[in-house]
Amino acid sequence: MYKSGLTIWYNVKNMDESVKYFTEGLGFSLDFKDEKQRIAIVTTNTKDCCIGFAEAETVAPVTSSAVFEVEDIEKAYVELKERGIHFTGEIETIPNLVKLVTFQDPDGNSFELSQTIAD
């Protein structure tokens, strides 16, 4: 029934700012952009997983988080901070499970980095 593919769509205030944030900031690549319709899609660290943006007059930030897996969360945290990503708090550890850190895009949507802790 299913095939490989997952896209998370967000309403955003400004498509260009979001694209800049996700490409220059987070380091993902731009996949598609329609200047007239004001929509864009970026690819993520995972094959067939994309994030889509469409401009809207009213934006209600979503509370669920898209979580990106990283190799080394401390390193990623420092590197992304240098690139201007504003993290909401410090790295938190859920023992024997994951390390997490949260950040928000320009519209206040929540995202996280996660590093699975191997026993």
């Binding site: 769509w9 309403n11 929509i39 889509g52 943006f53 007059e57 009213t58 209600a60």
Partner: peptide, 28 residues
């Protein structure tokens, strides 16, 4: 925005809230 608000109150158009919309590509 002002014009749309007037058209909403004149019942010419209906404004869909972010919660009414199933997808960001759908009409506002």
């Amino acid at each position: 925005s002002d014009n749309m608000t007037k058209l909403v109150s004149a019942e010419v158009v209906q404004r869909l809230t972010p919660y009414d919309r199933r997808h960001p590509l759908l009409p506002e």
